[in-house]
Amino acid sequence: MKHDSNLPLEYSTETNEMNILGFWIFLGAEIMLFATLFTTYFVYVDRGVGNGPAGSEIFELTPVMIETILLLTSSFTIGLAVHAMRINRVKAMIGFMIVTLLLGAGFISLEVYEFIHYYHEGATLQTSGFTAILLTTLGTHGAHVTLGLFWGIMIIIQTLRNGLNARTANKSFIFSLYWHFLDVMWIFIFSFIYLKGMM
């Protein structure tokens, strides 16, 4: 937000504070969303296989490992971006954000590859209850990351255009919360869907 002279400064900070609190509450709702997906996944993982393949038959460690590394690294770089923002180094901040988005794009491309692999293995959305919830959980996470890519681009454009101000800083910080959240969800997916599934 531009610091218009007739705008009291507290007002702008108050809005910012509110946005951040609101976003934390939204993340609470997101946790419930993913919790529902995980719960359903755990119900279907053994009993919902039907005539389709089980997890251990279709999971491949290599792409999943690379995806994990990409996403974890991107969580680190978005942290660096926020740090750069705090010390008012706009160029570094934008640079780290671009790296973050590139890593996210790499993650998404690998996930697309993974989905094509599942398709060839005969594990489609329609195969069984298990494959349906597997692909829905991964897909929901993937859709969140994809949305994040576009969102990040919007924020980069706005920061380049208007510089770092109360508004863009607020947006960037909230974006970083979102990105870290997706990373945490991925850690759950990696541990409880892939690793547990391959054991």
Binding site: L33, L125, Q126, A132, I133, T136
Partner: peptide
Amino acid sequence: TIALLMGTFDRQFFTNFFTTSDGGM
């Protein structure tokens, strides 16, 4: 939200979340 999404998938994309075959419950 998730339950409705699964229901939509079942009805419109022929998944097996809530069917009685192919591992649906």
